[in-house]
Every structure is written in C-alpha cells, then in structure tokens.
Design a protein around this nucleic acid. Structure first.
Length: 317
DNA sequence: AAGTGCGGCAACCGCAAAAGG
DNA sequence: ACCTTTTGCGGTTGCCGCACT
C-alpha cells in the first residue's frame, strides 16, 4: 500500500487501498464513457479519489489487457536483457512485454531479478561481473584491457539504443488513431523481440564463434560439440535486413545447445538480427581469450542469467 | 499461540514532459 | 512565446501475509 494510508484526510479525497466497490465504479464508468480527463473523472464517476489515483488504478490494475501472475522464463530474460540495454526505463521495458505494466516489472525487478543477478555475482545496475569491477580497481593491465572492451561495448550499446528509440517513434507514428478507450493501450504492444536485442545476440554469438576458432582451449569446446548435429549459425538467421553482415563463419552446434546457451526456445533462437553494427569491430578482439572471459562478455552484452545457460557453458569449458 | 522479520506488491509522491489555451 | 493543466514516469513507502523462532 501507499505510504500515506490511514486516512481519509480532511479534504475528503480518499487514499490507500481501493475497495471492490470503487473498482467497480471506475471500471463501469470507463467502459461506458472512456476515461476522458482524469481530473474530472472521479466526480463524474462518483468516486472520492483524485484523478491521478484513478488513472493509476486503471493503468496498473483494472484495464482488461493485463496479465497477472508469475513471469515466465522468457519474460525474465527479456527484462534482464532490456534492463542491460535501457536501465531503469520501466515504461520502455514494459512496452516490449505485452500485458505487463511498468509498475509490475519494476516491482518484479526490485524484489526478484535484481537479487538473483547479485547472487550469481553480477552487479544488477551495470550488469557487469563484480570480479571484473574489483580487478579494474587493482590496475591489472589485462583486466584494464577488458575494461576497454567494455567501453567499446558501451559505445555499441548506445548506437543500438539510439536505433531502438528511433524505431519505436516510427512505430508510434504508424499506429492508427485510437477509436476506442482500449486503443491507446494496444499501441503499447510492439513486436515481442526488440530488434536491437537481436544485434546483441548476434554479437554474443560472433564472439563465441571467434573464440571457438582461435583459442586452443575453445578448440576443445568445438571438438566437444562437433559430434552433435551441425548447424550454421547463419542458418538460424544471423543476417541483417536480408544481408550478411558478419563473416561466413560456421558453427557446429546443436539446436539444443543453442537454445540452452541462449536460454531461448529452439524455435526462436537466435532470432533474425537487424541493423548495421560491425560485429568484428566490437568483438573480434576476444579471439584467443579464455572462456571465462567470454562468459563475462556474453553476460555483459546480452544480460542472460539463465542458470541452464551458465551450467551449459561451464560444462563445455 | 504469539512475536518478529522479511519479501512482495499496490499505491503514493514529486518531478518532467507534453498538450492545450 | 509563455503560462497552466494534464499526463507519464521512476523512486519510494508501508501494509499484508508468510515463514521462522
């Protein structure tokens, strides 16, 4: 409940938890007339609430297109990935999780995901390994080099974010004008997978592949998975707007491993990448580095935290 | 059974941006 | 161009229920 419950105050405006009767009144009024001006709504609807409170109640609880209950694994991953990209911009994150509210996602992050990330050794604010942060403080040259890679990543991240914002605005303009009181909420349901994330996934895979080619330790990794079904990452859609942007690498890896590593369903992993980022420019330097470093890079870049993904990678190392 | 601690979540607050006059 | 009003957003609060002692 809100911080100032235990009223009502002298003004006659009620605060605190909503009663079923108030919910019923608000819902009935909006269904009949639309919300119109929130300021004038409470009086018209016969509610002793401020307009702001009504709006919040509708937006976070009463509107019909809200999914409540547990978050799926896929939703977890989407939130973590988007948070790595966008930070605490809950409304932007919610726009990519249909039927979830920004408030719900924010609460879920603070109460659940943030703690889980911390538990596995990652700073939930920066999405970086705590070990890497500590090492940087000690001035270790190797780790400082790693930090420069992180800085490069940040640059790529900002590019992706700029494109993301641009595309979101474009989508908003293309949306048809609202004709019913539900329509403004339908506008908040863009495609499930933000395109910028595909770039990140592609980058992470490129990194993995580069390592697999050049590191002796990773050669063993490649051998380990050579006996399984072979697929080209390219076959899974690593192209951008119909064009190949990366090199013609081929990665022997099974669908199962692919899904496990990325934490996605086989049907969707990895999805089609769009954009124009030069992957090698940002991640080619990781060729020859240790697997553990790659793990950190993967996490920093795509933010996955699926335990299955971690254990799968660890087994391969 | 009673007391205590803690996590989850609904709802509030203040500020900023957008819209309207 | 400026001022006022409205809406949206993110951070924070505190009640409620559950687990533990």
């Amino acid at each position: 409940m809100g911080k100032s419950s235990g009223y009502p105050p002298a003004s006659g405006i009620k605060k605190g938890s909503w009663t079923p009767e108030e919910d019923k009144r608000l819902l009935a009024y909006i269904q009949l007339h639309g919300h119109g001006s929130w300021r004038s709504l409470p009086q018209k609807a016969g509610l002793k609430r401020c307009g702001k409170s009504c709006r919040l109640r509708w937006r976070n609880y009463l509107r019909p297109d809200i999914k409540r209950g547990n978050f799926s694994l896929h939703e977890d991953q989407t939130i973590i990935q988007l948070h790595a990209l966008l930070g605490n911009r809950w409304s932007a994150i919610a726009a990519h999780l249909p039927k979830r509210t920004d408030n719900e996602i924010k609460n879920y992050w603070n109460a659940n995901l943030k703690k889980r990330l911390a538990k596995i050794g990652f700073d939930p604010v920066t999405h970086k390994s705590k070990a890497a942060i500590l090492a940087s403080a000690n001035g270790d040259p190797k780790k400082l080099s790693n930090l420069s890679h992180i800085a490069q990543w940040e640059s790529a991240r900002l590019q992706a974010e700029a494109r993301f914002v641009k595309e979101s605005k474009l989508r908003m303009h293309e949306s048809a004008p609202a004709v019913s009181f539900f329509d403004d909420y339908h506008q908040l349901a863009p495609p499930l997978v933000p395109q910028c994330l595909d770039i990140l996934e592609a980058s992470a895979w490129e990194s993995l592949i580069s390592m697999s080619k050049s590191s002796s330790r990773s050669a063993a990794l490649t051998n380990d998975i050579n006996g399984l079904d072979h697929h080209h990452v390219h076959d899974h859609g690593l192209n951008m707007n119909g064009q190949d942007y990366g090199p013609n690498f081929q990665v022997p890896i099974s669908d199962q491993q692919l899904s496990s590593l990325m934490g996605f369903d086989e049907a969707t992993a990895p999805s089609v990448a769009t954009g124009s980022m030069n992957i090698n420019e940002h991640f080619g330097q990781y060729c020859g580095n240790e697997c553990s470093e790659l793990l950190v890079v993967l996490h920093q870049n795509i933010g996955f935290e699926s335990e299955d993904a971690w254990t799968s990678l660890e087994k391969l190392m």
